[in-house]
Computed example of a mutant assay.
Amino acid sequence: MPTTPAERLRGLCLALPGCEERPSHGEAAWFAGGRRMFATLADRHHDDRLACWLAAPPGLQEHLVTTDPERFFRPPYVGHRGWLGVHLDVEVDWPHLADLVAAAYRLVAPAGLRAELDRR
């Protein structure tokens, strides 16, 4: 059983079909089908917080940052493209985060991997 937020996030990501983990900009990052990144850890990367950054569908970032700014934020570098920052150093709603990770994955995964996820 994962004990740290980073380990729990890793488990959510690696449970997705064809997911690969490799470093990106000094942080753990997860790629769908080895090609496109859908999630990255931000371990005090630009501030003193533990967080993750996720690809997000249009409008989701703005909605969550507006409604729950203690948990969600617009991350540097990728926030202007709609990516969502999720603080992991607060009480995390893990089922909700699992849904956000899956949605991020679906945005970038090839059709075959999305179909595999649907079959699960």
Score class of each variant (00 low, 15 high):
Glu21His: 06
Glu21Asp: 11
Glu62Arg: 11
Ala104Ile: 02
His63Glu: 14
Thr3His: 14
Leu107Ile: 04
Gly85Phe: 02
Asp118Ala: 12
His46Ile: 09
Arg10Asp: 08
Glu116Ala: 15
Pro75Glu: 01
Asp93Tyr: 11
Arg74Tyr: 05
Thr3Gly: 15
Pro69Asn: 03
Thr40Met: 11
Arg8Cys: 10
Arg71Leu: 08
Val78Cys: 05
Leu88Ile: 07
His25Leu: 15
Cys19Pro: 03
Gly79Ala: 10
Trp94Asp: 15
Leu54Met: 03
Arg8Ala: 14
Ala55Ile: 02
Thr4Phe: 04
Ala104Asn: 00
Glu116Asn: 05
Trp83Ile: 06
His25Met: 15
Phe73Asp: 01
Thr66Asn: 11
Arg8Met: 13
Val86Pro: 02
Asp118Gly: 08
His25Pro: 04
Leu100Met: 07
Arg119Cys: 05
Ser24Trp: 15
Arg114Cys: 10
Arg22His: 14
Val78Ile: 10
Trp30Gln: 01
His46Gly: 09
Tyr105Cys: 01
Arg71Ser: 10
His45Phe: 05
Pro23Tyr: 04
Leu97Cys: 12
Ala103Asn: 07
Trp53Ser: 06
Glu20Thr: 15
Trp83Met: 10
Ala109Leu: 02
Val90Gln: 12
His63Val: 14
His46Asp: 08
Asp93Leu: 10
Val101Met: 02
His87Trp: 15
Arg44Ser: 09
Asp89Met: 06
Arg71Phe: 07
Asp89Gln: 05
Val65Asn: 03
Thr40Pro: 10
Arg49Tyr: 03
Leu54Tyr: 01
Leu16Pro: 00
Val86Glu: 04
Ala6Phe: 07
Gly112Cys: 04
His25Gln: 14
Met1Leu: 10
Pro57Asn: 08
Gly33Thr: 07
Ala6Pro: 15
Glu27Ala: 13
Gly26Thr: 12
Asp47Ser: 14
Arg36Pro: 01
Asp89Leu: 06
Arg49Leu: 02
Ala98Trp: 02
Pro95Arg: 13
Glu7Gly: 08
Ala42Lys: 03
Ala98Met: 10
Leu107Met: 13
Met37Leu: 13
Phe73Tyr: 15
Ala28Val: 03
Thr66Cys: 07
Glu20Tyr: 06
Leu100Asp: 06
Val65Asp: 02
Thr40Glu: 05
Val92Met: 09
Asp99Trp: 07
Tyr105Ile: 01
Arg81Trp: 04
Val78Ala: 09
Ala109Asn: 01
Pro69Val: 07
Arg71Ala: 11
Gly59Asn: 08
Gly11Ser: 14
Leu50Tyr: 03
Thr3Val: 14
Arg35Phe: 02
Asp43Pro: 10
Gly18Asn: 14
Leu84Ile: 06
Trp83Tyr: 12
Arg49Lys: 08
Pro57Trp: 09
Gly79Trp: 02
Asp89Val: 08
Ala6Leu: 12
Leu113Asn: 00
Leu12Met: 13
Leu16Gln: 00
Ala111Trp: 03
Val92Pro: 01
Pro76Ala: 02
Asp48Phe: 05
Pro57Gly: 10
Gly82Ala: 07
His80Cys: 08
